[in-house]
């Protein structure tokens, strides 16, 4: 298959526990995100919209948690609350033991939006440099970082291109490089690969698996693809709509080291089946 440059193996800071014990139960101090009885009701012009209701979820360091559910069930809203871009109307959330606002002020997370959200007047390199520019990192250092992470997502020779000169998939990878570049321990990814074709999506999934294996970042990942959720996650949260609720939380039984072929393992097929059952149940409620 003729291919664009794919992911290179680049030195990444290795964090957390070794690959061996990552599936084991972590201590309570490892809790990164703690969501309790969370609810959010939007006050709209006609009627209030209950976007989320009674959400309880605890996420530990190094977990890869996927949120899956029908459109409009509040996945984006939940992520936005964790990121302090939206305020809950009920319940409490803590991120790294502090409020989402304090976590945001400390730049505790990298957010990858559903659309790439690149700034069109900046070239690829300077888009990736943006977070570092805001944080006041010296020019040389941030240039080096941007180069390194662009190489990681397979965009080595595209530094000087502008966003409109890239395909949607490439733009999404720039957005990924931008989020990774300042090395946040928490990644919030909202359907990052939703707009990509299957092949590109597979490649991005592989890259993400590699990155996660190396760095063991904590990831919350929104997706509509059951396969993607099964392949990537250590835990899958199935949600239903109106009001947005969690109806099932599925622990992955897959080994920590995965490739695209892992999807064909019997355990994976079983997981996918369970997710699909959950989604169906969620749909039959309304």
């Amino acid at each position: 298959m003729p291919s664009e440059p794919t992911a290179k193996v680049v030195d990444l800071p290795v964090r957390g526990r070794g690959a061996g014990d990552s599936s084991g139960r972590a201590a309570a101090s490892d809790v990164i995100i703690d969501i309790r009885n969370l609810g959010l009701t939007f006050q709209t012009a006609d009627a209030p919209v209950v976007a989320l209701s009674n959400i309880n979820l605890t996420i530990r360091a190094g977990e890869f948690v996927s949120l899956i559910g029908p459109s409009g069930c509040g996945k984006t809203t939940l992520m936005r609350i964790v990121a302090d871009l939206e305020q809950p109307t009920e319940g409490a959330v803590s991120v790294n033991g502090v409020s989402p606002r304090e976590a945001r002020l400390k730049r505790a997370y990298g957010y990858i939006f559903q659309a790439a959200a690149l700034y069109p007047w900046r070239n690829v390199q300077r888009n990736v440099e943006l977070p570092h520019e805001i944080m006041g990192v010296p020019k040389e250092e941030r240039e080096a970082k941007a180069k390194r992470y662009l190489e990681l997502v397979g965009l080595k020779d595209f530094e000087k291109k502008f966003p409109w000169q890239l395909s949607g998939g490439m733009q999404q990878r720039v957005s990924l490089a931008r989020a990774l570049s300042f090395d946040p321990q928490l990644l919030l990814m909202d359907e990052p690969f939703g707009a990509l074709d299957e092949i590109t999506r597979d490649r991005m999934n592989e890259e993400l698996l590699q990155i996660w294996e190396k760095t063991r970042k904590t990831v919350i990942f929104v997706t509509h693809s059951i396969d993607e959720a099964v392949l990537l996650s250590t835990r899958i949260v199935v949600m239903s709509a109106r009001p947005g609720r969690i109806i099932d939380v599925i622990e992955s039984t897959l080994p920590p080291k995965r490739t695209l072929e892992t999807r064909e393992m019997p355990a994976a097929i079983e997981l996918a089946h369970r997710v699909r059952q959950g989604l169906k149940a969620g749909h039959s409620y309304d």
Binding site: L85, R104, R107, A117, Y119, R122, E133, I134
Partner: peptide, 23 residues
């Protein structure tokens, strides 16, 4: 979304002005 991105980086009003609004 472009504004939210700035918020996630905890950018100051000054930075938002020069790095986002002006361009």
């Amino acid at each position: 979304q472009q504004m939210d991105l700035m918020r996630t980086y905890n950018a100051s009003q000054w930075q938002i002005f020069w790095m986002l609004r002006v361009p």
